[in-house]
Lab assay of single mutants.
Amino acid sequence: EAHAAIDTFTKYLDIDEDFATVLVEEGFSTLEELAYVPMKELLEIEGLDEPTVEALRERAKNALATIAQ
Rank of each mutant, 00 (worst) to 15 (best):
N62M: 09
E26M: 15
G47M: 07
D14Y: 08
L34G: 01
Y12P: 00
D49I: 04
E44S: 14
I6V: 10
Y36S: 15
E50D: 07
A60N: 01
T52A: 11
G47I: 07
I45Y: 04
D18W: 14
T8Y: 13
P51G: 12
L13S: 00
G47A: 07
E41S: 09
L13E: 02
E25T: 13
E26A: 15
S29P: 03
G27M: 02
E46W: 10
E26D: 06
K11I: 05
E32A: 10
E26L: 15
V24P: 00
D16S: 14
E17P: 11
L42A: 06
V37G: 14
D7G: 09
P38N: 09
A5G: 05
T10W: 04
A5F: 08
A60M: 03
E25S: 14
L42T: 03
E25K: 15
V22S: 09
F28W: 08
A5H: 06
P51C: 09
L34K: 00
E1R: 05
D7Y: 04
N62I: 14
E1H: 13
L23C: 01
E50T: 10
L64R: 02
P38E: 12
T30I: 03
L64P: 01
A4P: 11
A60L: 06
E46D: 12
V24Q: 04
M39R: 09
Q69C: 08
E33D: 13
Y12M: 08
T10P: 02
V37F: 11
Q69V: 10
L56A: 02
A5P: 08
T66P: 03
T52V: 09
A63S: 05
F28D: 00
E54L: 05
D7M: 06
K61Y: 04
E33Q: 11
L23W: 00
P51H: 13
Q69A: 15
E26W: 15
A65K: 10
R57F: 02
T8H: 12
S29D: 07
R59C: 06
I67M: 09
D18A: 15
L31F: 04
T66A: 14
M39N: 07
D7T: 07
A55L: 14
Q69T: 11
L34V: 10
E25D: 11
G47N: 07
D49P: 04
A35Y: 06
E33R: 06
M39E: 07
E1K: 10
G27K: 02
D14R: 03
L34H: 00
T21L: 13
A60E: 01
L56F: 02
S29G: 09
E54P: 02
V24M: 08
L43I: 08
E46C: 08
T52N: 06
D16A: 09
D16I: 05
V22P: 01
L31T: 01
A5M: 11
V24W: 15
E25Y: 10
V53D: 01
E33T: 06
F19T: 10
K11A: 07
A2S: 12
T21F: 11
A65R: 07
E44P: 05
K11R: 10
V53E: 01
I15W: 01
I67P: 04
I67C: 05
L43S: 05
T21A: 13
I67E: 06
R57M: 10
F9E: 01
I15S: 01
G47V: 06
S29A: 09
T10H: 07
D18S: 12
E50C: 08
P51Y: 11
D14W: 06
K11C: 07
A5C: 06
A60T: 03
K11S: 07
E17W: 14
A65Y: 04
D16T: 14
E44Y: 10
V22C: 08
A35K: 02
E25I: 11
P38C: 07
H3V: 13
